[in-house]
């Protein structure tokens, strides 16, 4: 059974059972259970808050920093956990893949969906933190979170489908992925805002060069930069996201999904010989 859209729809029971099994397995054998999904982002937020604000004495421009950091950290964690899981999933389930005919695309999709469920729990923490700091958010600005989450799912799914194939083909990939995602964490506006990038490149030492004006524009081509900024517009600044950002993020996400889907379809049966 090849991995295509119609087979996935036909086997949607499998996708649901696999995702539920993944979540149950994560929570069932732990003391805290699903409560850990709330505690985990809270701990991460406290660590970054303590380091950036408490130790480095920065982040005053982004107060309240806990909400600011959560807006980027939660989608980034969904991305990294899904990516790392997808890189190993086909090799990890090789005996299953060689025993039962099913659309194997369900395996990386399950990783993405389980990660997204954890992300949703993180969003509860984010909304509670925003409420605790009494941020002046409007209903309309908060409503933008829904399409942002949908586009995040599309983008991460596309990337994970591609990485799942290459992870099966290239043993070393999962080792490198840790470094790539760490680099992305610092390159993307997670700890800082995009205004800092504009400030550094247009007013700093590079400001004397005419081309430096293009850097913030090029920087904002990164879909994660748009995504993180979008969450901050919606839940931190209480602003409406620019139409240009929606268009760019939407186009990039769907192109990535299409490429990831096509790539997976190409390698779908071929990759089994490598396992």
């Amino acid at each position: 059974m090849i991995s295509n859209w119609s087979n996935l729809v036909a086997r949607r029971d499998l996708l649901r059972e696999l995702t539920l099994a993944e979540l149950r397995a994560q929570s069932q054998e732990t003391r805290l259970g699903w409560v850990f999904w709330l505690v985990d982002p809270l701990i991460m937020m406290l660590i970054y808050w303590g380091v950036v604000v408490g130790i480095f004495g920065r982040g005053e421009a982004y107060a309240p920093y806990p909400v600011f950091i959560l807006c980027a950290m939660l989608p980034f964690k969904h991305f990294t956990s899904s990516l790392n899981g997808s890189a190993k999933i086909l090799r990890g389930r090789d005996s299953l893949i060689k025993s039962i005919a099913f659309p194997t695309m369900a395996l990386p999709l399950t990783i993405v969906l389980a990660g997204f469920s954890n992300f949703l729990f993180g969003m509860i923490v984010l909304l509670a933190t925003a409420a605790a700091f009494q941020l002046p958010l409007t209903f309309l600005s908060m409503l933008q979170v829904l399409p942002l989450m949908a586009l995040q799912l599309v983008l991460v799914t596309g990337l994970c489908l591609a990485v799942a194939c290459f992870g099966a083909l290239v043993r070393d990939l999962s080792g490198f992925l840790g470094h790539v995602t760490r680099m992305l964490f610092y390159v993307c506006p997670t700890l800082y805002g995009v205004d800092l990038v504009a400030q550094r490149f247009t007013k700093g030492a590079l400001g004397q060069y005419a081309w430096s004006e293009w850097i913030p524009t090029l920087y904002m081509l990164n879909p994660f930069a748009i995504l993180f900024t979008g969450y901050r517009d919606a839940l931190f600044y209480g602003q409406i996201i620019e139409l240009r950002s929606w268009a760019l993020l939407g186009a990039e996400s769907f192109v990535v999904l299409l490429l990831g889907y096509r790539l997976y379809q190409y390698f779908d049966r071929r990759v089994i010989k490598f396992l």
Partner: peptide, 25 residues
Amino acid sequence: LSLGAGFNRDLSGRENIYLNAAFLG
């Protein structure tokens, strides 16, 4: 070809029945 290939070792037998059945369609 192989029995119980899709089992998740952290889940109960009952939960694995649902999971394995989903793999088998």
